[in-house]
């Protein structure tokens, strides 16, 4: 006997944010079909403005096999990834220890605040002209932009992660006779690790985004360079292949990092919100 046929206005708010995939897949498929139709029906969109999906796939194959503007697609991707890796490695290597220091030794915070506030609102990209002046069209220039984009997220999230460690834990460690070094390595860092890792993930993604911008302006190789060459040659399909590759690599980096995070840090993630 089921009554109360009245409409249930309560919404299933507890449903996970990730939706049933069919809807999204259908929406994306619809857009692809629309894209294809627009390019297939003559007179709607010129191929010069928007090539058909098949042209893009074909262009992808060509770029993967043949040299374009100095190297194949993979060569460009490898160049970008190398610069990115250099930049983010330095950012993590300096940013995480600095974040720990700032959280662990509070008087240091006001000392770095002026610099941090000064640089915080200057977009990484605004550093490109001066980086070019300093280091020319070199890997250092690109890596520096990556570093500038990645560094703050490392510092801030590490600091938040370490600062939020419950002082009761610290006192407990002290009463158990742990010194500063032991407390830091055995208590603080494991608790802060999820926040730190989240910071690293944001840093990696910020660095990747900024690198593309830097490569648009300077350099002779890289995915950003590839799309800027596509622009110069009026080849929209090249640009699209470049954009898709950049997006796919960016997404891949994040997926891999999420996996690694789950593997390395299976315990519950920190409660603080990550800061981008």
């Amino acid at each position: 006997m089921t009554t109360i046929a009245a409409p249930m206005a309560s919404r299933p708010r507890r449903a996970p944010l990730s939706p049933p995939l069919v809807y999204g897949a259908a929406a994306i498929a619809f857009l692809l079909v629309l894209w294809f139709a627009a390019t297939a029906i003559p007179g709607v969109v010129s191929n010069k403005v928007l090539p058909s999906p098949f042209d893009v796939v074909e262009r992808f194959a060509t770029l993967a096999a043949d040299t374009f503007s100095g190297s194949t697609l993979f060569g460009h991707a490898a160049a970008s990834l190398t610069r990115w890796l250099i930049g983010v490695t330095v950012a993590v290597g300096l940013g995480v220890p600095l974040g720990v220091l700032l959280a662990w030794l509070p008087p240091l915070r006001p000392a770095v605040t002026p610099v941090f506030e000064l640089f915080r609102y200057i977009p990484p990209f605004a550093w490109v002209p001066i980086a070019v002046l300093w280091y020319g069209a070199s890997t250092t220039t690109q890596a520096m932009i990556v570093f500038i984009a990645a560094f703050p997220a490392c510092v801030i999230n590490t600091q938040l992660g370490v600062a939020q460690v419950d002082s009761i834990l610290l006192r407990a460690a002290k009463t158990l006779g742990a010194g500063a070094a032991t407390t830091l390595s055995r208590v603080v860092l494991p608790v802060a690790a999820p926040a730190i890792f989240t910071g690293i993930r944001i840093a990696f993604s910020n660095g990747w985004m900024a690198l593309v911008g830097a490569e648009l302006v300077v350099g002779k190789q890289g995915l950003g360079f590839l799309i800027s060459q596509g622009q110069i040659n009026d080849s929209v399909s090249t640009i699209l292949v470049g954009m898709i590759t950049i997006g796919a690599l960016g997404a891949l980096i994040d997926v891999v990092l999420q996996r690694v995070q789950r593997l390395l840090l299976p315990w519950k993630s920190a409660t603080t919100r990550p800061v981008a």
Binding site: A210, L216, G224, S228, G230, V236, G242, I246, G247, G250
Partner: peptide
């Protein structure tokens, strides 16, 4: 359900990469 995946697909492409286009 319909629109979120579209943005998830678009999101990894840095806005700067749209400049040449």
């Amino acid at each position: 359900w319909v629109a979120f995946p579209i943005f998830q697909v678009l999101r990894p492409v840095p806005p700067l990469a749209w400049i040449p286009l």
